[in-house]
Design a protein around this nucleic acid. Structure first.
Lengths: 325, 325
DNA sequence: ACCTTTCGAGATAACGTTATCTCAGCTTGG
DNA sequence: CCAAGCTGAGATAACGTTATCTCGAAAGGT
């Protein structure tokens, strides 16, 4: 910049003014500076700019896996772009240590705010950052033990809706195959399922299967649910990945068992019959997250909010298969 | 930092030394500084650090869609992490304007290097950045018209392998349904397919269908390929998304037509029969990209390289269906 | 003609780091 | 016992921006 100033024969400050489209600089000098910038190949350095300004115009997104389907992240990017903020994302790989590493890096880089898919139960490392003024919003799962903005899906009523839907279609023996209950969403959904079964006067015995998404476990879960003296006639799955695994192991039985999957996905309409799902409103989640984050950045004293976004039952066929004999 | 220094009763430089684990500071002062840091809640500011140091320890990844399955990006993150570099990613949404915006933002932030999935044919905006010392590596597609490091899959031999495989299984009428040929990979694959057909003395008539991935178009393509006086007995698809669409429209005919998909995916083993695919070596692509980028960052005079990574035929059943009567 | 306002542009001081230089106080070897 | 080396720590100057203050000159009002 100082070189540009010398080349154009103006003061440093004037170059800054031209770069920032300040109107208080005469057209002739503007031209001189412009050509100097071009000949010297000057590119402004945002690091210095951000240092001086205090803000970076950047939001961080720390998500489980960048390279996985994540419609919430897409909505987050869109909403941020609309607000002229850049989103830079990194994966936490479902690893608490890595999450901490990523979030702390973003803090040291002084991102204006962070959208986080929190992992695990201990987020104590966030306390000093929050005290130091970090703006944070959690999506998909809350930050347990900390009073932080968050946007969640209505997991419980999603499961309840699925359950009621199956009951209405005549099912009595309904199984749930879910993710590891150490994960918040899995815990919520499993809990809701238990309550549904109890409320309908049923028993859980072979009807509830949660644990890691691992092919062998899913195979056993499917076998247990469909075997025995009183086999399930319907299955609810805990997330999109589990729907895939369950379908894989159902094989040709898939047409005889009613199935409702949590999460909509591309393959839902690829199958015969098409997959009935509980769909999350990912667009709403993403844009709400950005709204809340912007509000907090604008005024750190904003009251902490926990927003729950409704889910929707999408009827496609697999959930309407009647119970067998 | 100056507050910490005052609190600890030491010089500014000493705080910096403690923060950076410099050994030339006495244990007593280290302790004093540590407690001062804790009581004041001091967090180092990487913006200033990077400004002073010149490097940022950060790589940018500009990819089509963060929130889509992208195993190359995963490999890129892994490899960068192993080299103690942080990857921050952003979506270009397959939009040339947005790509430029994203890349230029990363340049102004002085990222040490950028991994780019280039879009479109005009990357002129990169020229001044490259002259100013930008380290860039293109993945999946080359940067046309510019001499830039890149890592590509061997698209042509992938198509050739698929074609030969089908011929070996007795097919004679083989159709190709591909993506829009404005996209580099789609162009390469379609071209290779044309050459295969010509080399085998066939004609293209209803055998080649390229264009945007749009449900209606795919339906027509499938219908055209399988209809008429000499219907195709086998189909090769141009990417994973197209495999899904083609399967969707094949419906129950799926078992009678041999199918080989470009790109492996989760659903390949979900179907009956399982999907035979041409799989890209995404791990190799990602780690090679990071290797090349690191080499260029270390020495900007490194010779520009274009690396082609082999693809692999994975036989699963759908590609081994014999031709019908 | 003189005072006041307005406007364009320069000087200087931050922003929060680290590198370089300096220096005082020790050791150490002859 | 002193010069030479080492060692721990401070002073100062960058890195590349922008905000604030200042100032000269032109314009406008009485």
């Amino acid at each position: 910049m100082v070189d540009v100033a010398r080349e154009a024969g103006v003061a440093l400050r004037t170059v800054s003014r031209v770069v920032n489209q300040d109107s208080t600089v005469g057209p002739e000098l503007v031209q001189r500076v412009r050509t100097a910038i071009a000949t010297l190949g000057y590119r402004p350095d945002e690091r210095a700019r951000h240092l001086r300004l205090g803000v970076t115009g950047t939001l961080g997104a720390a998500v489980r896996q960048l390279s996985h389907v994540n419609p919430v992240l897409r909505a987050v990017e869109r909403a941020a772009r609309a607000a002229d903020l850049m989103v830079l994302a990194a994966s936490t790989e479902d690893d608490e240590t890595l999450e901490r590493h990523v979030v702390e890096s973003m803090c040291r880089r002084r991102f204006d705010g962070i959208v986080l898919e929190p992992i695990g139960d201990d987020h104590g490392y966030l306390v000093p950052e929050l005290e130091a003024g970090l703006s944070l919003v959690a999506v998909d799962r809350p930050v347990l033990g900390l009073d932080v903005d968050c946007v969640l899906s209505d997991n419980r009523s999603g499961i309840e809706t699925a359950y009621r839907h199956l009951v209405r279609h005549g099912h009595d023996r309904i199984a749930y195959i879910g993710d590891d209950e150490r994960i918040y969403t899995a815990r919520e959904r499993a809990r809701a399922f238990r309550e549904c079964v109890t409320a309908h006067g049923g028993t859980l015995d072979t009807m509830l299967h949660t644990g890691q998404v691992e092919s062998g476990r899913i195979r056993e879960a499917v076998r247990a649910a469909l075997g025995g003296p009183a086999p399930a006639t319907a299955i609810v799955t805990g997330n999109a990945q589990l729907s895939v695994e369950v379908l894989r192991h159902l094989g040709t039985d898939a047409v005889d068992v009613a199935l409702i999957g949590f999460d909509d996905s591309e393959l839902a309409t690829l199958l015969r019959p098409d997959l009935t799902v509980i769909a999350q409103d990912t667009d709403a989640i993403g844009s709400t997250a950005i709204d809340m984050l912007r509000a907090r950045i604008a005024d750190p004293a904003t009251e902490v909010r926990q927003v729950t976004v409704p889910v929707e039952l999408i009827v496609r066929g697999s959930g309407e298969v009647p119970p067998g004999p």
